[in-house]
Amino acid sequence: MKKTMKRTMKRTLLLALALSGLTAPSSGLIREYHHVQLRKSWSDAQSYCREAFTDLAAVEDQSDSDRLLSVLRGPGAQAWIGLHDNKTGWRWALGEEDFLDDYTNWSPGQPNHKNYNQSCLTMTSSGQWLDRECRITLPAICYYDKGPAQFILVEAQMTWHEARAYCRSRYTDLASVRSRSENTRISSLVTVYTWVGLHRTTWAYWSDRTPNTFSNWNQGQPNIRGTAVDSCAAVGTGTGLWWDVDCRAENTFVCQKVYSRQRQTFRLRLRSKADLKDPAVQQQILDQLHQKLEQHGLDDFKLRWMRTLHREQEEEEEGTVCFYRGGHLLWVGSFNRTFEALVGHLGE
């Protein structure tokens, strides 16, 4: 009789867990925003946030933007967030290598960032370098590394990005200039302003080095121009829209506390006449939960069974499964004879 009951219990549990659903994990960091009511420059605010929290606030999507707005106080003001325009972050198109200043030939006063998006390099017939808006159309110098390396003048008028695509499709890439001799060779081909491969991405990274793929600029922003001003982003406390502001200005600021975790939700339904006080039943449930969690990409965790009682219905006994990972209790799920438990898992 006992063996029959265990076989029935096993079939019942297997059926119930086979029908249970597991949602796909949502990726990304959990950001907790804090509006600090102190007035500091952007760099001082960054230092404060890194000491007291994690960093200045980063905003990766509209959900982050909405939550950021919800913590802002004092309508009509501005508060620093973690975005700034790194005007030294130049890179060569070929290999996307960082520009290390080993060799430069900037014209006096260059780069001058005359317009906030002057972020692509041109060369003159004298070999001098100037930054220009990437959207204007100019000839280009391509580089070809097959056989004897050579530079090729392309006289067709193209934007910088069109020129890069053209050079990559027909040669190797837009030309890099890493020595005086290369600069002389290229300038000998040039008669008017001509594209070469140096460029930078404006407003590319947040303070915590998260790539910037989302924007919420106010109309006409960003608009700071010129080398005298270092540009940082501030959020309007009443609107949540971003403004391009001199980094030396003093504003309140938003810090973030970041939890490097993934959120995952499990919905489990079990109907069984099995006795949940029976250790064999409890182990059967734990074994099958363990298998299900592993099938959905979780590892390095432990499941533990605890027994509890409903306060309102003390005659109905309930089981509780505790989920441990890395020594930390992450979620608790409740089980009674007929149950539906929704539990949240915060993974490391």
Rank of each mutant, 00 (worst) to 15 (best):
E314P: 12
E316C: 03
Q291N: 09
L289P: 04
L303T: 00
L298P: 07
L298Q: 00
I285H: 01
D300Y: 08
G297P: 04
L286A: 05
R311V: 06
E318R: 06
R311E: 06
R311T: 11
D287F: 09
R307E: 11
D300L: 07
H290S: 05
H310D: 13
L303C: 04
E316M: 02
L298H: 07
L289H: 06
E316Q: 09
E316F: 08
L303W: 03
Q288H: 02
G297H: 03
Q313T: 14
F301T: 05
L286S: 06
F301R: 02
E315K: 04
Q313D: 12
Q295N: 10
F301K: 06
H310E: 05
H296V: 12
F301A: 01
E316D: 10
D287W: 07
E312C: 09
L303A: 01
D300G: 01
Q313C: 10
K302G: 10
E314F: 06
D300M: 09
L293M: 10
G297Y: 06
K302C: 05
L289D: 05
D287S: 09
L289K: 01
T308E: 15
K292D: 12
E315F: 03
R304M: 14
E316S: 09
I285V: 01
L289E: 01
D287C: 01
H290V: 02
R311D: 11
E316T: 02
F301Q: 05
D299P: 00
R307C: 12
H290Q: 08
G297E: 08
H310Y: 12
M306I: 15
G297S: 10
L289G: 01
R307T: 15
F301W: 09
E314V: 08
E312G: 08
W305M: 04
I285G: 00
L293A: 08
K292V: 10
D299H: 09
Q295R: 12
L286D: 00
M306V: 15
L309E: 13
R304W: 13
E318V: 12
Q313S: 12
L298Y: 00
Q284I: 02
Q288F: 08
D287Q: 00
L298T: 05
F301L: 00
Q284L: 15
E318G: 07
E315I: 00
D287I: 03
F301G: 02
I285A: 03
K292M: 05
Q283H: 03
E314I: 10
Q284A: 13
K302T: 10
L298F: 06
E314A: 11
L309H: 13
H296P: 03
Q295A: 03
K292S: 10
Q313V: 01
R307Y: 15
L309M: 14
R311A: 09
K292I: 09
E314H: 13
H296C: 01
T308R: 14
D300T: 09
W305F: 00
K292C: 07
L309T: 15
K302F: 14
Q284R: 13
Q288Y: 08
Q288A: 05
D300F: 00
Q283P: 03
L298R: 06
E317G: 10
L286W: 00
G297V: 00
Q283L: 05
H290R: 11
D299M: 03
Q288R: 08
Q288G: 04
E318H: 12
L309S: 11
E317A: 10
H290P: 03
L289Q: 02
W305I: 01
Q288M: 04
Q283R: 04
E317T: 11
E315A: 10
E316H: 06
Q313E: 12
Q284S: 14
H310T: 07
L303E: 00
Q283W: 07
E294H: 08
F301I: 02
